[in-house]
């Protein structure tokens, strides 16, 4: 049931009720007793639209960048509501994702037509990874 909730909640949470520059936190959710958390997640980003590339800009095609937060959530017993010990870290925000794009494409001046997705990976509910994935078109 939680997996179904996860799939639907992820979709629902992605509904941009407000503008993209409005704050919409995307921190990794661990649950249980969080012993340590040192992570960074996306909050807001004024996404450049397709027509925002300056005149004379040279398009370089599709570019992709990502940044991730990682977490561990270990149950203390094999019971439905067992206490969990959790920890998390990682730079998973927009800044790191855009920096990842620039590191892969030196000389890139900017991006436009930006699509942002969130990738959730969970293995047995113990290891969790949440990534912000930015797909865009670049220009020089």
């Amino acid at each position: 049931m939680i997996a179904l909730w996860l799939a639907l909640a992820l979709q629902a949470s992605a509904q941009t009720d407000g503008a993209t520059w409005e704050a919409k936190p995307g921190m990794l959710r661990l649950g249980g007793m969080v012993l340590f958390f040192g992570g960074e997640g996306p909050l807001s980003y004024q996404l450049p639209a397709a027509g925002s590339a300056p005149a004379g800009a040279k398009p370089v095609g599709e570019v992709f960048g990502s940044s991730c937060q990682y977490g561990l959530s270990v149950p203390l017993a094999l019971a439905p509501r067992a206490t969990r010990l959790a920890a998390g870290r990682g730079l998973g925000g927009y800044e790191k994702a855009i920096a990842d794009i620039h590191s892969k494409h030196p000389g890139l001046k900017g991006v436009y037509d930006v699509k942002v997705d969130t990738r959730h990976l969970s293995v047995l509910g113990i290891y969790r990874k949440q990534c912000v994935e930015v797909t865009a078109r670049g220009f020089q």
Binding site: M1, I2, A3, L6, A7, L10, Q11, S13, A14, T16, T20, K24, G26, G31, P42, Y45, L47, S73, P75, A77, L78, A79, P80, R81, A82, V114, K115, V116, D117, T118, R119, H120, L121, S122, V123, L124, G125, I126, V132, E133
Partner: peptide, 15 residues
């Protein structure tokens, strides 16, 4: 009991 999900690897739209 282990979070209710054996394995999840999904991408969801954000912005």
């Amino acid at each position: 009991s282990l979070g209710g999900c054996l394995y999840a690897n999904v991408r969801a739209p954000r912005a």
